[in-house]
Simulated scan of single mutants.
Amino acid sequence: MGWLQDVLNKNKEIGTMFDEFDFFGIEISQRAYLKKMALETCINFIGRTISLSEFRISKDMKKIKSDWDYLLNVRPNTDQSAADFWHDFTYKLLHENEVLVILTDNNDLLIADSFDRIEYAIYPDIFKSVTVKDYTFQRSFNMDEVIHITYNNEKLTEFMNGMFEDYTNLFSRMIETNMFSNQIRATAEMDSTQKLDDENIGKLQNFINKLFGAFRKNAFAIVPKLKGFNYEEIVDGSNSGKSVEELAKVKRDLIDDVANILGIPTSLVHGDMAEFETAIKAYIKFCIAPLIKKISDELNAKLIEKDDYLSGTKIEVIGIAELNPLEFADAVDKLRASGVYNGNEIRRKFGDEPVDNPLLEEYVMTKNYSGTIEGGEKDEA
């Protein structure tokens, strides 16, 4: 810095200009929205799937169906439809790793926004300070009075706490580099023989401010030429920076990592139609089916009495993993004709309720299957 100090000492006017004139720059903020974007994309994808579910009580029990059928499938509370409720239920479960649902005195199912859980070894856990929106319940709730599910996905939590920060820093740096490579840089040359007092320095600074604003904000800008003041842009084509495609790839990779942790095939998240059938089967089997199992187990444990459950009453979650009967008509014919399944068992596999028809409860075998079996027995003899 010695040479610069010498120059400044020799020319006090230039020194004053270094002190008075401002340099412009735009600070690049952290891209915290990347985390929200990845989570919203993947978690809402699962939430929309679960919201299509139908909760069906497999045995006709008027006491249960009169209340829970309506709450689970139509209107859980005064402010939400069933689809909205189960979407929010799934989102909170995946995002916060657990969800708590309480039943109010008015028979409304409400998802708790916050609560305190007191755990016991041999007694049911207790939930206190349960808050829904702006209302905090004064009473406490026992574990057997609520619907409580934990997701137990530590990988997602660890990823959120660590990798999101790295991706955010990387993405911010790429944007900063790209903006720098496309930045318009210029120099302003002034005649140093002219005397600049404080008033003239202020006027010149205002002129530079207007000049900068005109070039930055307007597609076309015309500025006057002043004697002793020369503006010149510096064009440097060597800085190519990061392309928009590379920025999009970073966002895509971040979503892919979250999707892999949640068990969602990445092709489904991005809407790729290649190998769609394979991807949707993997999605239902490895992502949705375990989640449905958690929900159905909790509902059966809390809403169905032990004796009723052992007698065949249970809550089933259908509408997602069931097959299309029109696509598997040949397989249905073979299952029925071979006597492996009866009619109502096949109906259940396709998500339809059993029909009160004695013929559908029978196991039948057509002649072509029975003939094959008898022929095989004769050959062995």
Rank of each mutant, 00 (worst) to 15 (best):
Q138F: 14
K155F: 14
T150L: 07
F141K: 03
E165P: 00
T150C: 09
N169C: 01
F141Q: 02
M143S: 07
M163V: 06
M174C: 06
L170N: 02
N153R: 08
I149E: 01
E176S: 15
R139I: 06
I147H: 00
S172I: 00
R139N: 11
I175T: 06
L156C: 08
N161C: 03
M160W: 03
F171M: 12
Y151L: 05
I175K: 12
N152Q: 15
S172G: 13
G162L: 11
N161I: 02
H148F: 15
T157V: 04
L156N: 07
L170K: 05
E176M: 10
M160I: 06
H148M: 03
N142I: 00
E176I: 02
T150D: 03
E158G: 10
N161F: 09
E176P: 02
I175D: 06
S172V: 04
E145Q: 13
T168R: 13
I175A: 06
Y151C: 08
T168N: 05
M143N: 08
K155N: 13
N169S: 04
N169A: 07
H148G: 04
I147Q: 00
N153G: 09
G162D: 12
D144P: 03
N169E: 02
I147C: 00
G162E: 11
H148A: 04
M163N: 09
T150K: 14
Y167M: 03
M174T: 01
D166I: 07
M163F: 13
E154Y: 15
K155S: 14
R173E: 11
N152K: 15
G162M: 10
E176F: 14
Y151R: 10
D166G: 05
L156F: 15
F164A: 06
N169I: 01
Q138D: 14
M163L: 06
K155T: 11
T168M: 10
